[in-house]
Design a binder for these strands. Structure first.
Lengths: 352, 352
DNA sequence: TCTTAACACGAAAACGTTTTCGCAACTCTA
DNA sequence: TAGAGTTGCGAAAACGTTTTCGTGTTAAGA
């Protein structure tokens, strides 16, 4: 087992100085053709590669991006990572991942672990607990130390940073309009409690679609699920709530669900109650994942283009990192961008 | 915007030496109570944290694990990452992720990017292309340089390293036995071509179950799908192949599918042909993911416990990393472990 | 033959730590 | 009060790079 070879060792073997080796490898004109070839041949033989850590220390940048997300076992988030990794790699960056598990503390700890030199900047989506507590000091501190952040999906306006979001309101509106256009008269929404920002926004889109079409929203058609019911053991409870919704509103002929799980659950319950999809009940959901594509019937969904979000976020971050390098004037007021990624409606079997 | 503070700056401000500051912060007894308090107070005020990169360089270890997987938008892999991240974090390590996209070249490049000092060891699952080409030089080289590797799921025996696998053969056997016990007389398997190792092994399990029960396997009941059909645009072709299977074997009453997608596709096609699940056709699939849980009918599956695999892999790797530190005798022959994670059968609605 | 320029290379600093060693300035002890 | 021991701190090396600057040797020009 031979440890990785260093400049120093090469220098010693070849009886030249470290500087000479370094220059020879970088094809400096200072070095004679002779020595250059000799050094390069030796380096190749021993498969020399510069040590990344030493470079990071010297250059004061790591060429690494830190990602902090609530969880990774989630189609949307893994799509985003795919996008980030794609452009990061193309632009010569690595990607280091921390999971907050929706916990404020883990989010803070993870950020601290990484902010001490390990990375050049963050791409993150805020944990639910953080959103509830509205404690954002770890973000502002990081930014104050000169480390840029790009937030995606779950963002919060008071933090000065680039953001990439989907237009939840508009996407939901289109979904509901699809149901209206397809002749649904009693459209219910299955959403989350309002502190989950996307739940709130998607509900808002639902309501706006109604307004635009002069339909009166009925509060009995708005079901807001306590978010913990997403966890598997609470599945029964989720089904029960949805069943109640149907039973107390027999005339429901359209469902807009803010995520796939709610949608498939609604379909399951509806079928049990004897409804046919899409003849008696049409369903549209948000977030296009594997359930939408492969469950039966396949779901008409609002696609969020997670990968595109990731790509955009990575580009924003890297652009900023590389712009900083040339910014001699540190006092220019930073101006941040909020990019909205368009959603689009993918029609499948759950609507007519 | 204040950049992160360093020992040198603290030393200068307090008019002591760098060494004194370092020692004071680490509560060295060499330092007087007085100076210690002074330094610690100052450090706290300016929120000093040691620079990780500098530490990595000094200690010749990064406390970072590199993960290389084929893709991340895949329930199994993201579960594994969750497990890795969990124990890594608990044991003070970070996790850096590279995606090979099933490509040999990207796998090699990704490993090279990380092997130059960025990480202490790898956890990886081999890309399909690599398995096909059977070119494993990048693994052996990495290992020869003293960087440990732990492989999971898609492993290859000739590489000397720790491995974490599921017992594909045994798991499949149990799945098929379940179908047999439930009275199925004509059980088909939908698998992948043999170069995908898990496809091969799971097929083997299917055959072994038959042998044990003195059933003759019929080649017409073994469908091996070209793996590219997993990609969404080939879905039609997948359905078509499965449909042919049913049409030319009218008596099929049990299906063992090596992944969820094949299972739901089989169910979809079967229904189209008028079969009822589980009355006329029972289905068991491998890999317990979101489709199994939430599609209708929910699938009886062989659970691989991805998170547990990740946890085990991370523990194996970190154990080895930390054992190395005390190993003065470098010549001890390394002995590697292969851990088999038990699968278990989760019964749901797709079987009686 | 002397000056100048080109050439080829080495020394050293810097990035931010930790740690070993050395050394002053005390405080005891006899 | 001399010698020994303790206390508190600083200098310097090391981790592996890159880069600036200096310098000795040779070749060319006058």
């Amino acid at each position: 087992m031979k440890r990785k070879i260093t400049l120093k060792q090469i220098a010693k073997e070849l009886d030249v100085s470290i500087s000479t080796v370094s220059k020879a490898l970088r094809n400096s004109i200072e070095i004679s053709e002779d020595t250059r070839q000799k050094v390069q041949a030796f380096a190749k033989l021993y498969n020399y590669r510069p040590n990344n850590i030493a470079l990071s220390l010297k250059n004061r940048k790591t060429k690494t991006i830190g990602i902090i997300i609530p969880e990774i076992v989630h189609h949307f988030f893994s799509e985003v990572i795919t996008g980030i990794e794609l452009v990061a790699n193309n632009r010569g960056y690595n990607v280091i991942v921390g999971l907050s598990n929706e916990s404020f503390d883990k989010e803070v700890i993870n950020m601290q672990m990484l902010a001490n030199g390990s990375i050049d900047g963050f791409i993150l989506s805020i944990a639910k607990e953080t959103l509830q507590q509205q404690d954002y000091h770890h973000f502002t501190e990081t930014i104050n130390q000169g480390m840029p952040i790009v937030m995606f999906d779950r963002v919060v306006n008071e933090i000065p940073c680039d953001k990439v979001i989907v237009d939840d309101v508009e996407g939901s509106k289109q979904a509901v309009e699809k149901l209206i256009a397809n002749g649904c008269k009693n459209i219910a929404i299955i959403s989350t409690k309002d502190y989950v920002s996307v739940g709130k926004l998607r509900t808002q889109g639902y309501l706006e679609a109604f307004e635009d079409h002069k339909i009166n929203a009925k509060s009995s058609l708005i079901l807001k699920i306590e978010d913990k019911l997403m966890f598997d053991d609470h599945l029964d409870k989720l089904e029960h709530e949805v069943e109640q919704l149907f039973k107390s509103n027999k005339s429901i002929d359209g469902i807009f669900a803010v995520n796939e799980l709610y949608a498939v659950t609604a379909i399951k319950v509806a079928r049990k109650l004897g409804l046919k999809i899409p003849e008696n009940l049409q369903v549209v959901s948000f977030s296009d994942g594997v359930l939408s594509k492969h469950s039966t019937p396949s779901l008409t969904t609002v696609s969020q283009h997670g990968q595109k979000i990731g790509e955009k976020a990575a580009n924003l971050l890297i652009n900023r990192l590389e712009a900083e390098e040339v910014a001699y004037d540190d006092e220019t007021e930073e101006v941040y961008e909020t990019v909205v990624i368009e959603t689009n409606l993918i029609e499948r079997e759950s609507t007519k």
